[in-house]
Design a protein around this nucleic acid. Sequence first.
RNA 1: GCCGAUGUAGCUCAAUGGCAGAGCAAUCGAUUUGUAAUCGAUAGGUUACGGGUUCAACUCCCGUCGUCGGCUCCA
Length: 612
Amino acid sequence: MPKQHNMPEQLFKIRHSLAHIMAQAVTERYPDARPTIGPPVENGFYYDFAVPQPFTPEDLAAFEQRMKEIIQKGVVFQRKEVSAEEARRLFAGNPFKLELIEGLVSGAGDDMGESEEETPDSQSAAGNSQSVISIYTHDTFTDLCRGPHVASTREINPQAFKLTASSGAYWRGDEHNPMLQRIYGVAFETPQELQHYLQQVEEAKKRDHRKLGRELEIFFFDDEIGPGLPLWQPNGAAIIEELEKLAKEIELKHGYKRVRTPHVTKEDLFLRSGHLPYYAESMYPPMELDDGVKYYIKPMNCPMHHKIFGSKPRSYRDLPIRLAEYGTCYRYEKSGELFGLMRVRSMQMNDAHIYCAEEQFEQEFMDVIAMYLEYFNLFGIDKYVMRLSTHSRKGLGKKYVDNESLWLKTEDMVRRAMQKHNVPYVEQADEAAFYGPKIDVQIWSAIGREFTLATNQVDFAVPARFDLKFTNREGKEETPLCIHRAPLSTHERMIGFLIEHYGGAFPVWLAPIQAVLIPIADRHIEYCQQVAQRLAEIGLRTEVDDGNDRMQNKIRKAQGQKIPYMLVAGDKERDAGAVAVRLRTGEDLKAMPVEQFIARVQPIITERKADL
RNA sequence: GCCGAUGUAGCUCAAUGGCAGAGCAAUCGAUUUGUAAUCGAUAGGUUACGGGUUCAACUCCCGUCGUCGGCUCCA
């Protein structure tokens, strides 16, 4: 996603000006530091510096203090337009600024670090010759900048910002470029808004799936097993089972057939698919057998499914053919990219491949979109963005299959299908798969990191590499299109997301433990076990808390585990064949016969309702 | 992979070069309780791992591994 600057004008100016003030503080303390770019961003701002030594936490505290002093002086920001020569002279000691100036001169970009839209054809030369170079000066500091800025630092509340972090960042976001040091700040108009934001961040940390996953005993990582390789505890496995059950039901309804494929395969398969050598760095290294044949652990399932499609002659009458598998894949993600369950090295994908004729494409593609919406509606997921990810011309032959007309054609197919069915989406160039455009569903983790949850991809290239064919109406051989889709993402990312989405309080059908039986005294344990047995008969995941705690503490523990139903049983309930039902919301439904509880719960589970 | 921070009991955290501790969890005992913490006792550690400095290292230094915050990348 590009950085969106849809914040109010004044806030934009405050944040942008704070970035300049920070640059002043930094260059005062470290005259060797070379400021590069420093834009406002969501919730604040950052500035990247080229420095000989990375900043320390003490540096940040000192910068923040100095910034407050500068703000309190009430200095003004002054804009001045300069010629290219003057700009070059002013920033002669700063190669990064000089690069920016050359960019401005050639009309390629600005000091916000944003590249202009990649539309070389439509781009007239108009902006180039007359691009304005402006500088802003406040106090002792002058920066190359488009602006706008506050008129005076009196518009900035010195108590309404905070420097939060420093980290490395590559110049212009390219890992082949030198690494700069970035300082992040958060900033608002008032101290109250800052406090509110900081509190929100604290609240979000409580929903973090890494924290909840441990507390709720859903999954964990172990040093001896390896980074990015989660172990699913019984609670996590219960969630997985439910998701697979859901997927199988829905996919059956949508005409999918289930297949199973091996986890390892000869190198030849991935050479054929084109993943090797291109994708090799994201794959676990091969194992070489005695005869010198290399085998890889699969990073995706598609080539295997292609083989199944190609295993016999296909007629147009057979299409579309939809092959589904919860395939287990392994990807050697770079160590620094791992992130709890959201980014792992072993994963189980809600994968399927749909082979269809071109005239069937729209219906198949939209059926997948409908499936997404069906799932999202079920989970109550509404904070997502559907993104049409398209190719870029400069990536043709490198990141993307080199066939521009097919790209344009398939992108248009997707675009028209989405528009015709009124599904909102945004478009993002240069994010496509190497074999075709796709609809990605973007979501955000509790701490605000963006991920692709589900994906729906067009593949106009790989079926041909596998010589996939069907016989069309005219008796001629034709290559099918392939749709790769994963509406439920991978178990790992989906469950990571769902933990945060529900804050650990899963709907009953997904809850790892659906009801806990709480005996009031030891003499009620046996009765509780009988009830638990009965509940197990209808498929409820139940436990009896026969521990030595008092009932109150058992409730507290169940509450902490976010178990939907707490079923309390004492003398009265035992004698009446009843349980006293307490919901995790705190609501007390009082005693009811066990069969009445079952009658309440069963439809909630089978219909996968959100309520308790 | 890169930059930085960080790693103490299952979990959350103390101990700033001088005997490694607390709360929760666990185990045992007592209690038998009516809707968010009953009481007591016990056990739990080669302070991530490997080197080094020092009379003495959880503490200082170096390396490895993991984790966290970013960058890059992605289901």
